[in-house]
Design a protein around this nucleic acid. Structure first.
Length: 766
DNA sequence: CGTGTGCAAGTTTTT
DNA sequence: CTTGCACACG
């Protein structure tokens, strides 16, 4: 008989898919078809009579959630299984039960930089000496505490740790200020829900019953709070199915606790343990190398990886004289393969330990005219202009949000300086009110001079005017913000290149808002939009469809696969990283990081080092990573490229041999790319940080200037009756697309037009 | 109050 | 080499 849920699966895979009730631990090696197993299992559970409303699948990333959701949908089209990230799951519970933890349901989610502002303020307030502790370090310590479910009042200082006494003093104040602003940080979302479940057993039991079947992906990356969360929801109904791989745990530094997965069998009774050890991704050559490396870790569950795939080329280890040559050779190698039609740019990936290394590879690729993309980098929603605009929206949604207030009150500059802001802050604190409310009383604050009070009053008036829009579509709200505050104007008047790119980013933000409005015709509230933005990261939008070489950190590479992988700068200090040398545990994590990188490769893998590396503006001698000595050299291809390392004292490999240049010599004559001049006109040549909008649209249309309709935000328009005006906001889609226009003659009044029917037309401006 | 310059520091970063 | 932030000036 054939059964689409089980056909073509291996026996262990079937065992996992067939599991319905009780705890399940799937130890899934890299490339072992884990997602397939999980999705098939969900489909099988549904088929066995489990209601989809009783299932919730939790992931770490939006990307993983998206992937799982779409695959479940394909297998079980009618189902409404809730697939969500941990944070989104908690966000939703928090909205519902906000009053239980001292929040209002319109609470704000602060990202790391927002929370850092609060923390800095708290540090000042408590007058803590921060001589040896940067706010970032304190923030990490607080985050650690929250991840370990240590509430502010329960935190105890450790005398051996200087930071911990600072934390003890400032953590409660930090938390108090967050609550005062009706805001949470990322860690709060999880911690507050866990706390809620802990303190309210009735609620816990109800939710346990509601979510009878819980699935957790990447269980090796869970921290204590996440552990408590899923555990407390698996008491009466211990149908907890987790998948993960201890060898791919690379987020220990963020509080991930390897014990969660290693001790799963102790935590639950009658655990069904399934090992997925067969790899469907990589050649045996690559797999052997990965296996040897990870075998040096002590804290793990032994797995024996194997594959039926045919043998491929040996894994190569190349030593270059300089980092420059390394980059150049990699670029040539890619160019050659592409030129010969063997591979396409998208088949290649370059992984490095730190983002700062990306530059030289980038330059080399550009030189060869190879299209590439850097995943990560400066995140779209963290860019100043985006944060500024969203801060206005956040303040509209939650007027108690002091961080947003502080950010926008003088952006663009309107004569409200630091001193004035500080006075508002003090007044707010003294009276237990928000800064916005303090601003409303500006006239009554004695310390404020007249000029400051007037400026603040004008800002409040501006804010109140914007508030009237709060129930409009999001695009319109943002549009109004951009024009009413003069935010767009400040960049429009500039011919600075950077300002122009800011404008482009703002336009992308508008189109994302427009997309949101279209997708949420009913529930498209500003609150929902802001939650979306807070919980989305643009690397989630990584798009393998684009035909470009991918460059990313090893961390970002998890979960992906590429036919041809380069792992560069495998050198002491970088991999393992300098800061990871304190403990064995950290060293093992670094090793896992390399393991993750290696196991991304499907067919070809090249590890490389350079004897001299240009980094941070200086050239330094390097030492090859100790990890390289843990690889099975008899199965690999060791090649010292060009000059041998100049120092005799450094570690040597027995069988290093020089290779001739001819491997690369034919490149450049006939290459598709070599005769093209890198230029702006050819898409993909320029440095490219992917943004969400780019990813969706593809590189050619990254600039929204080819908007199908002739109208856009802030455009000058002419109307036969009202005369000359300016579009201050737009919303709607297709035939219903409308523009809000402010006319020269109309004062503050605006008029709305449905573009398809109106007599509005673009005014020629020069 | 706003802006410019000098200086120190610089993993990784699912949300 | 970058980038963020502190401080000094106009």
């Amino acid at each position: 008989m054939t059964d689409p849920l089980f056909d073509g699966l291996t026996q262990p895979q079937r065992d996992a898919v067939a599991h319905v009730d009780g705890p399940l631990l799937v130890l899934a090696g890299p490339g072992s078809g884990k997602t397939r197993v999980v999705t098939h299992r969900i489909a099988h559970m549904l088929r066995s009579g489990v209601y989809s409303s009783q299932i919730v699948a939790l992931t770490f990333t939006n990307k993983a959630a998206e992937e799982m959701r779409s695959r479940v949908e394909r297998l079980a089209p009618q189902s409404t299984v809730w697939v969500s990230t941990f944070h989104r799951f908690c966000a939703r519970l928090l909205r519902h039960y906000s009053n239980l933890v001292g929040l209002e349901s319109n609470y704000t989610i602060y990202d790391t930089s927002d929370s850092l502002q609060i923390l800095k303020r708290s540090l000042q307030q408590q007058e803590v000496s921060t001589s040896h502790a940067t706010p970032e370090k304190v923030a990490r310590a607080i985050s650690w505490a929250k991840n370990n479910m240590i509430l502010p009042e329960r935190y105890e200082a450790n005398s051996a740790n200087a930071i911990s006494s600072i934390v003890r003093d400032v953590y409660p104040e930090y938390q108090r200020q967050l609550r005062a602003a009706n805001a949470v940080d990322f860690d709060d979302m999880l911690m507050l829900v866990a706390q809620m479940l802990q303190e309210n057993d009735e609620l816990r039991a109800a939710l346990d019953e509601r979510f009878r079947y819980i699935l957790v992906d990447e269980y090796q990356d869970t921290n204590l709070v996440q552990y408590l969360l899923v555990r407390s929801l698996s008491q009466q109904f211990p149908n907890l199915g987790v998948t993960g791989d201890p060898d791919q745990s690379i987020y220990g530094w963020r509080g991930a606790n390897l014990s969660n997965i290693l001790d799963f069998e102790k935590d639950f009774e009658h655990v069904n343990v399934v090992r997925l050890e067969q790899n469907f991704r990589s050649t045996p050559n690559i797999l052997t190398v990965a296996d040897h490396l990870i075998g040096h870790n002590k804290r793990r569950k032994k797995k024996s990886l194997f594959t039926d795939l045919p043998a491929g080329n040996p894994v190569r280890l190349l030593t270059y004289a300089t980092s420059h040559e390394e980059a150049h050779a990699i670029a040539l190698r890619i160019a050659s393969q592409v030129a010969q039609g063997k591979r396409r740019p998208r088949d290649f990936a370059i992984f490095y330990r730190v983002n700062a290394l990306s530059r030289s590879y980038e330059e080399a690729l550009r030189q060869q005219g190879i299209p590439y993309m850097i995943v990560s980098g400066v995140e779209f929603y963290h860019r100043k202009e985006i944060k500024d605009v969203l801060a206005y929206a956040m303040l509209l949604n939650n007027p108690r949000d002091d961080v947003a207030f502080t950010r926008v009150v003088n952006t663009p500059t309107r004569g409200i300086g630091q001193a004035t802001v500080l006075k508002l802050q003090v007044h707010a604190l003294d009276n237990g009110i928000s800064m916005l409310d303090a601003a409303r009383e500006a006239g009554m604050i004695d310390s404020l001079n007249k000029r400051g009070a007037v400026a603040v009053a004008k800002f409040v008036a501006l804010f109140d005017r914007l508030s009237l829009k709060i129930n409009e579509p999001v695009e319109e709200i943002l549009g109004a913000i951009l024009s009413e505050t003069g935010y767009r104007a400040q960049y429009e008047d500039s011919d600075d290149e950077e300002d122009q790119s800011r404008l482009e980013n703002i336009d992308e933000l508008l189109s994302s808002a427009r997309e949101f409005d279209i997708q949420h015709p009913e529930d498209g509230t500003l609150e929902q939009y802001l939650e979306d933005k807070a919980l989305v990261n643009e690397t989630d939008e990584f798009d393998a469809e684009l035909d470009r070489v991918t460059m990313m950190t090893l961390h970002a590479a998890k979960g992906l696969e590429f036919p041809f992988v380069f792992i560069v700068a495998v050198e002491q200090g970088l991999l393992p990283h300098d800061r990871s040398k304190d403990s064995e545990a950290q060293l093992e994590e670094e090793r896992r990081l390399l393991f993750v990188g290696i196991t991304r490769a499907q067919e070809e893998l090249e590890l490389s080092t350079a004897s001299k590396r240009d980094f941070r503006g200086r050239r330094q001698m390097t030492v090859p990573s100790t990890f390289l000595f843990e690889l099975p050299k008899e199965e690999m291809d060791f090649q010292a490229h060009l000059a041998p390392p100049p120092t005799a004292s450094r570690p040597q490999w027995d069988d290093v041999h020089e290779i001739p240049e001819d491997d690369y010599s034919q490149i450049g004559e006939s290459g598709d790319f070599s005769d093209q001049t890198p230029s702006e006109e050819v898409p993909g040549f320029t440095k490219m940080l992917m943004t969400a909008a780019d990813m969706v649209k593809g590189p050619q249309s990254a600039r929204p200037k080819s908007d199908p309709d002739r109208f856009h935000q802030s455009m000058a328009v002419l109307h036969p009756t009202y005369g000359l005006g300016k579009i201050i906001a737009m919303s709607g889609e297709g035939a219903k697309r409308t523009a809000t226009v402010k006319f020269l003659t109309g004062g503050q009044d605006t008029k709305k037009f449905v573009l398809a029917y109106s007599e509005l037309r673009p005014a020629a401006t020069s």
